[in-house]
Design a protein around this nucleic acid. Structure first.
Length: 570
RNA sequence: UGGGGAGUAGCCAAGUGGUAAGGCAGCAGGUUUUGAUCCUGCGUAUCGAGGGUUCGAAUCCUUCCUCCCCAACCA
């Protein structure tokens, strides 16, 4: 298929697309484009992985190719099937399907065979140096390394030793297989890198079949080549591994193991987000130390956390598209993520009314037992249909929507002020009821029956429209409000002696237990997403039960009034 | 004192010798039964700095500066 379609003109190509485009033009891969997403199954995927997933799958999609899902499981002590399952789920949830699924462990035999070949051709040797001796012999940035005394072993001896390593004749850590490259290289990766270590560990897939396990640099390129990957995309820190990647594949001069052309490694800058930590290690610590509840805590930047938070796959994909692909180390503003989810939910989320911090209003001129049924739109776009609401004598409004002494430009409730209850009617605040401590506990209002369902017939306007819930019809629910997990833009950028955990936001979670919801929310199911009018986007949490609903706030609405307030406070 | 990368507006990011796209954020107006959405307008960007080549440089050459990555039997 040499007629693979070029990238759409709607957007400038990124540098990787330029490369693929150039290869397409020269027909380097005879029109094929095959990428791979190769996570190690040692943790849950996060939004940084989402960038890589979107890049790999998106690239293949653009050029009519495909993407493999490959689990890079060469280190049995860190990996587990639990992670394999979650990775599959997350990639699929993001909306991508892989052409085939592989495990680096599928290649253990080829890897072994190629290693024997490298030994036979004098390109690899068994080294008996201890771990610390190897480090010492390797030298450092400023001094070149020196050859291991075992570098001169004969091919026959190396082959014999390697076979005995495999057979289990030697203790863990007593011997390694090394590539014979250049101990003087300025690139540390080329100073006779390790290819195999002895590890008596149970592997989640191959069980106890192997006692020796290949290392990343050796296994990765070979895996790519076995799958005939065309473009092997990874992050910047692997830039100086590329010569090694190429070296391993190039030793197969006769082409006995790999078909040509060989895959090409391309590096891009990983995603960094403000107010977020991204490393699996630190994410694990957040879970282990109880700063969050689990990997899927809605405050986590994990795919499962974002999913539980209420993010949509489309929003995440759009976000990744917006972020771009380049080689510059960058820190993306988490505000862009918030924009992406608002943009998507604005279009699709049905509107509902919920009162987070209820303040009771008694409409004194509305008789007890009198109920008005209302039909209100689910969305500003009428295509989404309508729902039923009820108006009765007692309603709840948001405490924040009343001020006894209103500031300038206050459009909401205040003594004597008239506002609209969204979709219902106009009410005027006549009286304030306080408790002994002076707290406002209730408002007495009157309504204008003529304004029911619309404006007042006399044409008078009100500036404020409030969300509300009929007390007689309200259902109770729990709402969890989430904020950024960290207070620092870059949690890693701490002062001398400080710790990244010092910047954890103590107010990242606020649980409201007596939220009032409109009746139509009664049957809300886990995962359902709504916009609570004037508040934000919310979704039903997995903890939710039919008689005890739990909602997560995905993201608040933009709030230009809050900005005005903040400014006036100085 | 080595090797590999990167520097374009507050944050991303196009641009590949012809006179600095776009998005987010921000600001100002308009519409609005969400202070949401939507619409309109708004940034003299010393293109890290200096020097050079050229009619013309963010793009080419050169010197310098700053930042990131590399010394796991991790990936």
């Amino acid at each position: 298929m040499t007629d693979s379609s070029p990238a759409p003109e709607s957007r400038a190509l990124n540098f990787i697309e330029d490369i693929v485009e150039a290869d397409r033009v020269t027909e380097k891969h005879a029109g094929r484009v095959l990428t791979r997403f190769p996570p190690e199954p040692n943790g849950y995927l996060h939004i940084g992985h989402a960038k890589s997933i979107c890049l790999n799958f998106g690239l293949a999609n653009t050029y009519g190719g495909g993407t493999n899902l490959r689990f890079d499981d060469t280190n049995p002590v860190k990996e587990d099937v639990e992670y394999v399952d979650s990775i599959r789920e997350d990639v699929a949830w993001l909306g991508f399907s892989w052409v085939s699924e592989h495990f680096a462990s599928d290649y253990f035999q080829v890897l072994y065979d190629y290693a024997e070949y490298l030994i036979q051709t004098g390109k690899a040797y068994i080294c008996d140096l201890t771990e610390s001796e190897i480090r010492e012999y390797r030298g450092n940035f400023y001094t070149s390394g020196k050859d291991s005394p075992f570098r001169v072993r004969s091919a026959d001896e190396n082959l014999d030793l390697f076979r005995r390593m495999k057979a289990g004749e030697f203790a863990d850590g007593s011997k390694v297989l090394r590539a014979k490259i250049d101990m003087q290289s300025g690139n540390m990766n080329l100073r006779d890198p390790l290819m195999y270590r002895i590890r008596r560990a149970h592997h989640h897939r191959t069980g106890d079949a192997w006692l020796i396990y290949p290392l990343y640099d050796y296994a990765h390129g070979v895996s790519d080549a076995m799958e005939r990957i065309t473009h092997s995309i990874c992050t910047l820190e692997f830039e100086d591994h590329r010569p090694l990647y190429d070296w391993f594949l190039a030793q197969d001069a006769e082409g006995k193991f790999f078909q040509r052309p060989l895959p090409r490694q391309i590096e891009f800058a990983r995603l960094n987000l403000t107010y977020t930590v991204m490393s699996k290690r630190r994410l694990l610590l957040l879970v282990q130390e109880g700063h969050v509840n689990h990997w899927d805590d809605p405050r986590m930047p994990t795919i499962c956390g974002l999913r539980r938070r209420g993010f949509t796959p489309a929003a995440l994909r759009n976000f990744c598209e917006c972020v771009g692909v380049a080689k510059r180390d960058s820190f993306t503003d988490v505000g862009l993520l918030e924009f992406a989810i608002r943009e998507d939910l604005e279009k699709i989320a049905h509107r509902r009314m919920a009162v987070l911090r209820p303040l009771k209003i008694v409409i004194t001129n509305l008789a007890e037992g009198e109920v008005h049924e209302l039909e209100v739109a689910n969305h500003p776009d009428a295509i989404h249909g309508t729902r039923r609401l009820f108006l009765s004598r007692e309603v709840f409004v948001e405490r924040d929507d009343f001020e006894e002494i209103p500031p300038k430009k206050w459009f909401r409730l205040a003594p004597g002020a008239e506002v609209r209850l969204k979709g219902a009617c106009l009410i005027r605040c006549e009286d304030i009821i306080k408790d002994e401590s002076g707290q406002v506990v209730e408002l007495r209002c009157t309504w204008d029956p003529a304004s029911l369902g619309g404006d007042a017939p006399d044409g008078r306007k009100v500036k404020g429209t409030l969300h509300w819930v009929s007390a007689a019809h309200a259902i109770n629910a729990e709402v969890r409000l989430y904020d950024r997990l960290f207070t620092a833009e870059n949690p890693m950028d701490v002062e001398e002696g400080g710790d990244w955990r010092d910047t954890l936001n103590p107010q990242s979670l606020e649980v409201l237990k007596s939220v009032k919801l409109e009746v139509s929310l009664t049957d809300a199911k886990a995962g359902d997403r709504y916009q609570f009018e004037r508040l934000g986007y919310f979704c039903v949490d997995t903890d939710s039960k039919p008689d005890a609903l739990v909602f997560n706030r995905t993201v608040a609405l933009k709030d230009s009034w809050a900005k005005v307030e903040e400014k006036s406070k100085g």
